[in-house]
Amino acid sequence: MAWTRDQMAARAAKELKDGFYVNLGIGIPTLVSNYVPEDVDITLQSENGMLGVGPFPLDNQVDPDIINAGKQTVTEVKGTSYFSSADSFAMIRGGHIDLSILGAMEVAENGDLANWMIPGKMVKGMGGAMDLVAGVKKVIVTMEHVSKDGQSKLLKECTLPLTGRRVVDMVITEFGVFSIDKHGPGGVTLVQLADGVTVDEIKAKTKAALTIGPTVKA
């Protein structure tokens, strides 16, 4: 037993604090908005130039000019604002966004992140990912712990081209929650086990050097 995608998103939602301005990536990160605690009020930022992103529209509410960065139709909330892409990234690069949650192909024990290209395959581009990880105050990665061919995605060093150097603060996989000392030599610490997962199982599937946090029962 490990966490489902929704359980991973729900766990990531526990990192949200009241008043946070948050940017969510595509995939599991998008699901996080379904699990915002009731006593927590957050504002979603979308890098195409929207602050205050609401849920998907009802069929009769669709407005082609209201989309998120994933090009999906969305809605406004009370207090929504629109701005240019330059203003949007000034917000991101200027450190005004509290939290970015995004997916990854690889994360290294020093916080390096790779999530935008695989050499030799068609490259789609990095979009706003490099700006987000360089500028946002806290970066959480949600990803599957191992790749489709069974390789650990939590590594000593990334093998793929980087999206950012020493940028990831926390990783949430189906096996648990890991904190990363991105500014120092502390590496990866397991801080929470997913239901039904053992420390030995995680060790066997993790290539990064792993410290077991004091709150984790072995």
Binding site: S85, M126, G127
Partner: peptide, 24 residues
């Protein structure tokens, strides 16, 4: 990077030949 692209265009239009960023 999207923010670098936006800022390169903004800078170009504002007569700023170059700038520094952490992105990338």
């Amino acid at each position: 990077p999207q923010g670098t692209l936006a800022e390169r265009v903004r800078a170009g239009g504002a007569g700023i030949p170059a700038f520094y960023t952490k992105t990338g």
